[in-house]
Amino acid sequence: MLMATAQHKGFQPVADMNGFRNAFSTASAAIHSITSNFTQEKNLSLLSEKITSKGKFWFKKENLVRMEYQQPFNYLMIINGNNVYIKDGQQENRISVKSNKLFQKINKITIDCVKGTVLSNTDFKTKAFENSQYYLIEMVPVAKDLKEFFSMILVTVDRKDYSVSKINMIEQGGDNTLISFQQKEINTTIADAVFAVK
């Protein structure tokens, strides 16, 4: 597991942070939608245990996200602006995140990652690293409520199209949740109905 060090194995610090920020922002401005499969691995380090789940992911600008877990359980989460719809196999739930600042911040992480605006998220102190294939954005929470959940979030960005390949959320106790995106399709047409919160 990648640890909270100034340097990440296989990566060098990005020398020109402003240049990277501009390039990332310009390239991701061209991304209007993403459809992909995802794998989520929850690693419980002290238990030597990994909980793996899989599903499908949809993103459409500006702030529409659908995450549909399909294995080994069914769970659907749709973020549509300030509204969140959750269907957990037994019940449906609709939440307005306006009244929940923490939920807003957590939603902002996902949206910022895919929108390429993650570097300007003031809830985190960010640094960037690179190798020949990827950029790695290290996000250390500044906000106290986020610090309870994460010691660091590492976002791996594909150099070829600036799309997000992995989001690794590392907790204070050393456990982490790694979401990797596979079979990404950029800018395919996605109907708004996919993100309907009804």
Partner: peptide, 28 residues
């Protein structure tokens, strides 16, 4: 109120049980 998630029950080598409850999205 309704809450859903994943509960892991694991017997450890020292025979104790660990019970871990998290959301589907990984928040413990």
């Amino acid at each position: 109120r309704h809450l859903s998630g994943l509960l892991l029950v694991k017997q450890m080598p020292d025979t104790t049980y660990r019970v871990v409850f998290s959301t589907e999205t990984g928040v413990k």
